[in-house]
Design a protein around this nucleic acid. Structure first.
Lengths: 304, 304
DNA sequence: TTATCGCGTCCAGTTACTTGACGCGATCAG
DNA sequence: CTGATCGCGTCAAGTAACTGGACGCGATAA
């Protein structure tokens, strides 16, 4: 099957992709679908359909009774290729109200249910300032929603990276108040007040820079056939999964999968995978954190 | 600030959105950025920039030294609006290799780290057949990767919905072998072999159709200020969160947040929220499941 | 039957976009 | 300082995309 590699103008290509998309997800589409979603005339839509037929004639046929173009059995995507995950993500985003259906190409949203506890949306203004600070190596003064909920004096941080885990966004930053590196929850930053050039050397954040291999295995407490299934699901080789991971982030992954719980506390079904080198990880993390703090202390006494 | 509500052709509008996007995320863009991502000439790109300036002149200025258009301090998005979550999702998707950077408008990917254990990608052919079966009320014969990994005879299911939780996709289906409704892991369906009209009445899936309110509270074992923080993070009112949820899916949400663990087993930090009406939920789930099974049994003895 | 609707197509006119050419200001190597 | 380079802006002329209007065709519904 061709991949639609002809030289097409960007807009035309997108419309042919749309045809591909609708055939895949709905099995059908209309000329008017094409015309309304792109705001083009019916004539132009006809021309586009003709264009698509030239490229992938076997993919569709017009059904007069249905008044629609119908996907054939030998349909093979000519444009959208292997980008299925992308559209699945869009479905999740729609259900979570992160996206409006109109932002996507879905017509009938498939009957899906998305289950999360949700979280507060990200403030664009905050994200913009944080990204700027990362890019331009600035330190920023922020209003941070403290644990107690009480009003706190503003804090000064020098962010240098974003991290995402288990649905949360973290801002990896140097903290002026503590003179060490920490994670700040992006959604808890209420406001970015001011900014100035940062003085800290972010390469001293060893806990971020250094990686370690998490060695993950199926929980040996599970019946052997369940262990095999778990191994298969996580695409393990030789019954184990090696996952490289920044030291500072290892905590979140361990937390998400209950890897930080002592063996035997939870039923094996609640802890399908276990971390084989847990002690090594916690120890490496603690020591790199200590090294980082000492290096920062030396730098500040020496430099200022 | 205007929202770019002029009547613009679809392609032009997308390009102005692109300008908005790059200004937001990178703080800058080039004429050639515009020209190359959309495959248009430099002249046309100039025209588009002029067009954008007419709509949101205060958003950008040209810096001759930088050879780029730079975001001003009073920048306010004129096109991309509040669709920030969408682009954050794209960043996650890129890091997970679900999307290629070229599928997005990002130039320099911000320094982000995405932490998951990953999973096998979804097979487009399988998804397509499953969606068809849902839409057309068909039953399908599938090759299902069993827990033991051994080859199993094919199973016959009649799917009627998709569900997403904790990174997994489930296919809610009637099972011919068991004459009840179950969840099938989408990634475990290796192949869809055949299909025919389904005979089962999906409205008998009470465990799916019926919803219950999960009453979620901060773990009382946490210090009060931590409880307040948890309540705030989950946007609780009066210290509790009411989350309506299909009975069949309640299990996954409980599993994801360790709500299904007896109080006292885990440290409170590992179980920041607790389910106040756990007994009610498990009981409702069991009874609706039983009702469903009985209804199906009556239908099959009476009907066939 | 008649009315309606969606598709396909021929037509002429408009807009978007192209290639080609030239000038301007900033940066850089010699 | 000078000439080369690069990215931007613009004028001009031609092409491709797209629009409006009009007409016929087949299927469906009143």
């Amino acid at each position: 099957m061709e991949d639609g590699s002809e030289r097409l103008r960007w807009g035309v290509r997108r419309r042919l992709e749309f045809i591909d998309f609708r055939l895949f997800w709905d099995g059908r589409f209309n000329r008017s679908d094409l015309a309304t979603t792109f705001g083009i005339s019916a004539q132009q839509a006809s021309a586009d359909i003709g264009h698509y037929e030239k490229i992938a004639a076997a993919n569709l046929r017009y059904d007069r009774a249905e008044k629609a173009y119908i996907r054939t059995d030998d349909f093979a995507p000519a444009f959208i290729g292997e980008t299925i995950e992308r559209y699945l993500l869009q479905l999740v985003a729609i259900e979570n109200r992160w996206m409006r259906p109109g932002d996507t190409w879905f017509d009938a949203i498939p009957p899906i249910e998305v289950l999360t506890l949700g979280r507060r949306p990200t403030d664009p203004a905050v994200l913009l300032r944080v990204l700027d600070a990362i890019r331009k190596h600035q330190e920023i003064d922020i209003d941070y929603a403290s644990l107690t909920g009480s009003v706190q004096p503003s804090r000064t941080i020098a962010p240098h990276a974003l991290a995402h885990s288990a649905g949360r966004w973290y801002v990896r930053s140097w903290s002026r108040d503590h003179n060490d590196f920490r994670d700040y929850n992006l959604n808890r930053i209420a406001k970015v007040i001011d900014h100035r050039p940062a003085s800290v050397d972010v390469s001293l954040d060893y806990e971020w820079a250094q990686k370690i291999n998490l060695v993950i295995r199926p929980n040996p407490g599970l019946p052997p056939e369940r262990q095999a299934a778990v191994a298969s699901e996580h695409a393990m080789t030789d019954g184990k999964l090696i996952r490289p991971c920044r030291l500072s982030l290892s905590f979140y992954l361990m937390s998400e999968y209950n890897l930080d719980v002592e063996p035997g506390v939870l039923k094996p079904e609640k802890q399908q995978i276990v971390l084989h080198n847990r002690d090594e990880v916690t120890q490496a993390r603690a020591s790199s954190r200590q090294m980082s703090i000492e290096a920062l202390a030396r730098a500040s006494t020496g430099g200022e």
